[in-house]
Amino acid sequence: MAQITSPELPPAVETALIKAAGLRKVFPPTRRGGDAFTAVDGIDFEVRRGEVFGFLGPNGAGKSSTMRMIGCVSPVSAGELTILGMDPRVDSSRIKARLGVVPQEDSLDLELRVRENLLIYGRYFGLKRAEIAARTAELLDFVQLADRAESTVEPLSGGMKRRLTIARSLINSPEILILDEPTTGLDPQARHVVWDRLFRLKQAGTTLVLTTHYMDEAEQLCDRLVVMDHGRIAAEGSPRDLIERYSTREVLEIRFAPGSGEQEAAVAKAEGLVHSGERGSIERIEELPDRILLYGADGEAALAAVHGSGITPLASLVRRSSLEDVFLHLTGRTLVD
């Protein structure tokens, strides 16, 4: 039988805006006789249209290198990378024309005012001045900087600069917005403003790709994410999937007086609660320098069982599992040191 062709099937680019297979980034040795550094060690992922896709991992995991390769400012060392159906080695300018980039380090033009930053950036894309002017007004409203349009960049707060960078990255109405650590260095209030704006972009259908080492940021924004560590992908899925797959519903955190030796004793006792089959049974224990984490379905019951087994913590906390716990489980380390 002849194969059934389906003309309605969208082209491949519609299902995956960005596609990577065996992607590697190796930096040559900085000194003669030094070692080459592998920042990205063969990763595979796909970003689909309209989703928010995240790279979660600690500093040095290879997230920024991956983002720079996607942004066509860092040559791919090995493997495949396709962005909007094009190869960055050949079509970097055409790809970049359809991307928006929010770099980790602010790169606003300090010699230009707020409005001019958008105007000139738009000109880099070859847009017409009138078109940029109209869009600038909209974008400054969107990032709540309309009243600072004639200000210079220097006196703006960190949060304002970040929002201006986001507005700038949107000047060409990009199909994909890539954000490298969008809220690192911002205070909590400024972070929430940025999250709110990014959430609106997501609602409007923009595809977002972001890196973060904040698990709350990843949980709030990402539809799907990969957990990266040492240049490799440790796990992939939605935040909820990952938590279900790699952690328990709840976590009990218990703390002891530092240096008292109580924590070590408590770990030994708590081992008895693992898979005890009774109420308060836990699945596993993680020991951190300053606290013990007990993973189980019911944190309050686990706390009762802890007391019952003769452990008396200085403080205790029951909470839901988060991506932090997923990362801890996968790598044995915490995201933020």
């Binding site: 024309a97 770099p103 790169s107 880099y124 060409n172």
Partner: peptide, 14 residues
């Protein structure tokens, strides 16, 4: 310092 060229290279400029 200003990373002006980095910003330009994120656009179609080469």
């Amino acid at each position: 310092y200003a990373k002006t060229y980095d910003a330009m290279l994120a656009t179609p400029l080469r």
